[in-house]
C-alpha cells in the first residue's frame, strides 16, 4: 500500500557527501604557500607601517642623498635607492599600489564582465550581437598600444587612471567567458523549471543563472590578478603608469634600470617582490581553478 512505499523511500540512503571545497584546498601545498604569501602581501598593502619598521628604518620618505645607491647595510637590509631612501621600506610601501590596482581592476572587470556577459548570454539576439561585436573590436586591437596612447593622453597618472585603462582593455576576456557560461546555464533544465513555476526574469537571472554561471569567471579572475599586477608594473616601467613621487614597484624598476650596473640591488629587490607576488597570485588562482573544475570534482566523487 501507499504507506509502505513512502516509508521505504524515506529510508533511501543518500550517497556520501563529497568533501568540502575548503577541505580539499587545504590539502594542496601550492594553495597553502601561495595563499600565505598573498595574505602577507595584502597585509603589507593595508598596514605597511607594521612591516617597514622591522629593521630600524620605516619611513620611506626619510631620505639622505649621502646614502644614494648604497648597498645593503645594517638596519637597511636592501640598501638605499638613488634618493638615499631606505629601499626596504620603499619596497614594502610599494605593495600598496600594486594591491590597490589589482583590487580596483579585478572589481571593475568583474562588474563590467558580469553585467555585459550576462545580458549578452541571457537575452541573446541584438543585445548579444552589439556586445559581442564590441568585444571583438577590443580583441582585434593591440591592447598595449591602446593603453600607452590613452595613458599618455591622460593628465593625471594615479592608481585610478591606471586601473581604468586596465579595466577598459581587460574586461572583454572575462565578459566572453561570462557570456558563454550564462548561455550554457540559461538553457539548463532547472532554469526552465523555475520559469515553469512562474519565476520572472529578474529572479531567474539573479537566483539561478548568475550563481551557477559565476564559477568560470571567478576562477579566471583569480588567475588574472597576478597578470594585473604585472601589467601595472610594466606600464609604470614604460613610463606611462604611476609616476614619482608615487611609491610602486614599477616606479622603482623604472628608476633602477639606469643604475643597474652600479647598483644592481635597486633592480633585484623590487623584482623579487614583484615576481613572488605575481607567482603566488597565479598559483592561488590555479589551485582555485583545480578545486572548482567539475571534471576534477567528479574524479573525487566517484570511484
Amino acid at each position: 500500500m501507499a504507506s509502505s512505499t513512502l516509508a521505504s523511500a524515506s529510508a533511501e540512503a543518500p550517497p556520501a557527501a563529497r568533501p568540502g571545497l575548503l577541505a580539499k584546498l587545504r590539502r594542496r601545498p601550492a594553495f597553502a604557500i601561495s595563499s600565505a604569501i598573498a595574505l602577507v602581501v595584502c597585509a603589507m598593502a593595508a598596514v605597511p607601517q607594521a612591516f617597514a619598521g622591522w629593521f630600524g628604518g620605516g619611513d620611506p620618505r626619510k631620505c639622505d642623498l649621502v646614502n644614494s645607491g648604497l648597498p645593503p647595510a645594517p638596519g637597511h637590509p636592501f640598501g638605499f635607492d638613488i634618493q638615499g631612501c631606505d629601499l626596504y621600506s620603499n619596497v614594502v610601501y610599494g605593495a600598496r599600489s600594486s594591491v590597490l590596482i589589482a583590487l580596483l581592476v579585478t572589481a571593475g572587470m568583474i562588474v563590467v564582465a558580469v553585467v555585459l556577459g550576462s545580458l549578452a548570454g541571457y537575452f541573446r539576439g541584438w543585445v548579444d550581437a552589439v556586445i559581442s561585436r564590441v568585444m571583438d573590436v577590443f580583441f582585434g586591437f593591440p591592447a598595449l598600444v591602446g593603453m600607452i596612447v590613452l595613458l599618455q593622453a591622460a593628465s593625471t597618472h594615479n592608481e585610478w587612471t591606471v586601473s581604468a585603462v586596465l579595466i577598459l582593455f581587460g574586461w572583454p576576456v572575462l565578459a566572453r567567458v561570462m557570456r558563454g557560461s550564462v548561455l550554457e546555464t540559461a538553457t539548463g533544465e532547472y532554469v526552465a523549471a523555475a520559469r515553469g513555476v512562474g519565476a520572472g526574469t529578474a529572479r531567474i537571472l539573479l537566483r539561478h543563472v548568475l550563481p551557477n554561471a559565476l564559477g568560470p569567471v571567478a576562477v579566471l579572475t583569480g588567475l588574472n590578478v597576478g597578470g594585473v599586477i604585472a601589467s601595472e608594473s610594466a606600464l609604470t616601467f614604460l613610463g606611462v603608469g604611476l609616476q614619482t613621487p608615487a611609491i610602486s614597484w614599477g616606479v622603482q624598476l623604472n628608476t633602477a634600470q639606469q643604475y643597474f650596473v652600479t647598483s644592481p640591488h635597486l633592480l633585484i629587490f623590487p623584482s623579487i617582490f614583484l615576481t613572488v607576488t605575481v607567482l603566488s597570485f597565479v598559483l592561488l588562482g590555479d589551485s582555485l581553478r583545480d578545486a572548482f573544475d567539475p571534471r576534477l570534482r567528479q574524479e573525487v566523487a566517484r570511484p
Binding site: M1, T5, S8, A11, E12, A13, P15, A16, P303
Partner: peptide, 15 residues
C-alpha cells in the same frame, strides 16, 4: 496495482 519496489538504494561501495 502497485509495482513491487525494492526499498532503499544500492549500498555505497566506498563504505
Amino acid at each position: 496495482r502497485r509495482l513491487a519496489v525494492i526499498p532503499g538504494a544500492p549500498p555505497d561501495p566506498g563504505r
